[in-house]
Amino acid sequence: MNLKYGFFPGCTLKSAEKELMMSTMEVARALGIELIELDGWTCCGASHIQDYDEFTATLVNARNIALGEKLGVEKIVTVCNTCTLMLRTAKKKIDEDGELKEKVNTGLERAGMQYKGTAEVTHLLWVLLEDYGLERLKEKVVRPLNGLKVANFYGCHILMPPNVMGFENPKNPQSMELIAEALGAETVNFDQRLACCGFHAVFPAEKEVNKLTRINCLSPKEAGADCLVTPCPLCQMQLDAYQPGAQKGLDQDITIPVLHLPQLIGLALGIDPDKLGIQRHVVDVIPMLRALA
């Protein structure tokens, strides 16, 4: 398998979640995966834009995919659950509806572009399992995460809806556990493993999402986990940056560090934690790293 991909970072990697950009690039380099950032990509609409205008949501994502097709790559890789969902939703709609495809291309023509449908949209987690392979990943581990108890928080949009995402059964996925175990970590089962982080309604449903964050942090902590790990920057932001707010007024300590998946991988590959942006977290990751050392 040719390990050359079009890379769709998504907005958070350029701003609040720069550490995911740093860690993704470091890990890709260490594994020999070539990521070519799409030139001129735009926001995927983050599962909000379609509430305002569904056709525009399809158009901007057709354009994003067309940017990848122009590179001649087989796959466009993302590291955000919601970006993956938005791009795949647009792709599925267009690929299944010839009339829509024509309509989309009439619009894209004005921007001097064309959507062909030749590039697949995937997530780094899937690339590691499907294209790279666990055995190969294991060979690259220089600092096995022995003794680290990892709670995998999948996030909704890498699993659902299954007719768009379809990589694994959303009722009991295993991909995150497979990666964590390949890195030498111990995986912890916990009630909120497949829960929603609530990020997409953090403004209109602030009170409820705050409550959800408490449960989502307490559940892995009570199950004995040292950290949460997630393949989605939006889940990470919700669980990490909003954690102090969720702690407020609560006697019980909910503190738990929240790692991005590439950060966990990077640690096992022996990459300097600073290069993985570990210091950019709201909830301090350093005590966990000390315990690991």
């Binding site: 701003s15 735009t42 056709f55 354009r63 004005r110 921007a111 950019r280 709201v282």
Partner: peptide, 30 residues
């Protein structure tokens, strides 16, 4: 909290993406 960890930087200037005119064409078209 976000500024302390460098997660947001209000002074950072955001440039339009390459091909922004094309993006706006799509909006008009929609």
């Amino acid at each position: 909290r976000m500024m302390k960890t460098g997660k947001i930087n209000p002074l950072e200037l955001q440039k339009p993406v390459n091909g922004i005119k094309g993006v706006r064409e799509l909006y008009d078209y929609a």
